[in-house]
Amino acid sequence: MKVDADGFSFDFTDALDAFVFDEKDKTKPTYHGQPMKAVDIIAEFPDAYIFVEMKDFNDPAAYDTKDFSTEEELKAKRAGFKWLKNYLKYKCRDTYLFRHAEQKAEKPIHYICLLTFDNALNTAVRKTLSKELPVGLASKRWKQELVKSCQVVNVAKWNENFPKWPVSHTPGTGEA
């Protein structure tokens, strides 16, 4: 099942369904149209859903808060990192709400962010994002999870770990 979005082409070969979740085309049955944040793609499998959000960065270093030369730079980077974290967090939460209203949040959900960072920086984003989403049964009062897991990977790691869902940059979008 092929899906193109935001400069990436996916093939979810074993999916029951896969579609652009933040669909802007009003003529399509999957048109989103609500004032809510939305992940790029949802794919459904017999025992799980995956939410996929992609972001292709020109300057990954702009989000790396471990490395900085001046206090201003650190401030800007912290702001950048916080923006990115919030961007990914609220997209996932709003998408969950939308799916809840659709009565399509009954299976475990895995949230996968495809970011063009190196593995080290992706690991840092994953740690913060997992904590704030939050992942799993975060509260003792919760009976079900919002998301079962959160992963942050680059294209190479995606393809290594999800061979049934190959991804590549869509030809003509500036990346090979």
Partner: peptide, 19 residues
């Protein structure tokens, strides 16, 4: 090395989904 941590994390929490 960080990549191998990513792999193990996915292995642990996604239980073979997409493999």
């Amino acid at each position: 090395t960080f990549g191998s941590i990513v792999d193990r994390e996915i292995e642990k929490s996604m239980e073979g989904l997409g493999k």
